[in-house]
Computed example of a mutant assay.
Amino acid sequence: MNASKDADMMVVGPAATEDSPGCCSGSVSTQVLHHAACPVLVVRTRPGVLEVG
C-alpha cells in the first residue's frame, strides 16, 4: 500500500471466481479498496472479452 501514497489512482481486477461472483470478491482487490491512500478503480471484464496483459 506504500505505492498508493504517491499514486493518483490504483486500478485492479476483481479476481472473482465462479464460487464468489461478487463485484470485488478477490482478496487483493478487497484489501486495496480498504487500505489504499488514493482512489481505487476495480475493472471487471465481460465473459468472452479478450483480456490483454
Rank of each mutant, 00 (worst) to 15 (best):
V42E: 04
G13F: 01
L41T: 06
S20L: 09
M9A: 13
R44H: 09
E51H: 12
A7W: 05
A16V: 08
A36I: 06
D8K: 12
H35A: 06
V42K: 02
A37N: 02
E18I: 14
T45E: 09
S27Y: 08
M10S: 07
R44M: 10
K5N: 07
G26V: 07
V12C: 10
P47G: 08
A15M: 05
R44V: 10
S27W: 02
M9P: 00
V40C: 00
T17E: 05
G48Y: 01
D8Q: 14
Q31Y: 09
S29L: 07
S4Y: 06
A37D: 11
A16Q: 08
D8A: 15
A16T: 09
E18Y: 09
T45N: 10
M1A: 13
S25C: 06
P47W: 04
T17L: 08
G13D: 05
V28H: 02
G26M: 11
G13Y: 03
A15D: 03
E18T: 14
M1Q: 10
G48K: 06
G48P: 03
A16E: 03
M1N: 04
L41W: 07
A37K: 14
N2R: 12
R44L: 12
V49P: 00
A16Y: 02
M1R: 07
N2Q: 12
A3H: 01
S20D: 13
L50D: 07
S20P: 04
M10V: 15
E18H: 03
P14Q: 06
T45Y: 12
L33E: 00
V12K: 05
A15Q: 09
T45L: 11
V42M: 03
L33V: 08
A15Y: 01
H34W: 00
L41Q: 07
E51C: 13
P39S: 13
C38P: 02
T30A: 15
V28E: 07
A37Y: 01
N2I: 10
